[in-house]
Each structure stands twice: as C-alpha cells, then as structure tokens.
Amino acid sequence: MTETPEQPTRPSAATLNAAIRALWIGGVLPVESRGEYEQLVVDWAAAMRAEQELAA
C-alpha cells in the first residue's frame, strides 16, 4: 500500500485578502511590510485562480 503525502492546506483567497488588508495601517503600507505584502498578493492571485477552477 502506497501512502500519498498530504497536500499542505493553502489559505483561502478570503484569508489572504484579510491578511493583506491588515498590513495597511491607517491606509498606509509601512515600508517594512512591502515584501510580505507582495508575497501575499501573489499567493492571493494563485488562490483566486484555484478557487475559480474548482467552481468551473
């Protein structure tokens, strides 16, 4: 019997969107948060595509 490795669960687009919004303090993105912001946006876009593919 072959075991398949478990897929790591990815955060939903909604969860990533909430994390993105939380970085914006008073409508301003702090300079030290830009790297994290950029990665979250990339991850959010991938999550959106995955969710759209599931819905189709």
Results as ranks from 00 to 15, higher is better:
Thr2His: 14
Glu36Ser: 10
Gly35Leu: 13
Gln7Phe: 06
Ala14Asn: 14
Met1Glu: 14
Glu38Pro: 03
Thr4Arg: 11
Ala22Lys: 11
Gln52Asp: 08
Ala56Gln: 15
Arg10Lys: 08
Ile25Gln: 06
Glu6Tyr: 01
Thr15Lys: 08
Glu38Met: 13
Ala47Pro: 01
Gln39Trp: 11
Glu32Met: 04
Asp43Phe: 05
Glu38Cys: 08
Thr15His: 07
Gly27Leu: 05
Glu51Pro: 01
Glu6His: 03
Leu29Ile: 05
Arg21Met: 06
Ser33Phe: 08
Val41Asp: 03
Val42Phe: 12
Ala13Ser: 14
Glu6Leu: 09
Ala46Arg: 14
Gly27Cys: 03
Leu16Phe: 02
Leu16Glu: 00
Ala50Leu: 11
Ala55Trp: 07
Gly26Trp: 01
Leu16Arg: 01
Glu32Gly: 03
Arg49Met: 11
Met48Tyr: 09
Leu54Glu: 12
Pro11Ser: 13
Glu32Ile: 07
Leu40Asn: 04
Ser12Ala: 00
Pro11Asn: 07
Tyr37Ala: 15
Ile25Tyr: 00
Pro30Met: 01
Pro5Cys: 08
Glu51Phe: 02
Pro8Glu: 05
Gln52Ala: 14
Gly26Glu: 04
Val41Lys: 07
Glu32Phe: 06
Gln7Glu: 09
Ala46Pro: 04
Ala47Leu: 01
Glu3Asn: 09
Trp24Glu: 09
Thr4His: 08
Leu23Gln: 03
Leu54Asp: 12
Trp44Ser: 10
Leu54Gly: 08
Val28His: 05
Ala22Cys: 03
Val28Trp: 03
Trp24Asn: 07
Leu23Arg: 04
Gly35Val: 09
Met1Tyr: 12
Val41His: 04
Ala46Trp: 12
Ser33Gly: 04
Ser12Asn: 01
Pro5Val: 11
Glu38Tyr: 10
Asn17Thr: 08
Pro30Thr: 00
Ala47Gln: 02
Arg10Cys: 06
Glu51Val: 04
Glu32Cys: 04
Pro8Arg: 02
Ala50Arg: 08
Gln39Phe: 09
Glu3Cys: 07
Leu54Met: 14
Met1Thr: 13
Val42Ile: 15
Val41Met: 07
Ala19His: 01
Ala46Cys: 10
Glu53Thr: 11
Arg49Ala: 14
Ile25Cys: 02
Val31Ile: 12
Val28Gly: 02
Val42Ala: 15
Gln52Val: 10
Gln7Cys: 06
Thr2Ser: 10
Pro8Ile: 00
Ala13Tyr: 06
Val41Trp: 01
Arg21Lys: 06
Glu53Gln: 12
Thr2Ile: 13
Pro5Glu: 14
Met1Phe: 13
Thr15Gly: 02
Ala14Lys: 13
Arg49Asp: 12
Ala18Ser: 11
Glu3Met: 10
Gln52Ile: 14
Ser12Thr: 14
Pro8Lys: 02
Ala47Phe: 00
Gln7Lys: 13
Gly35Asn: 12
Gly27Tyr: 05
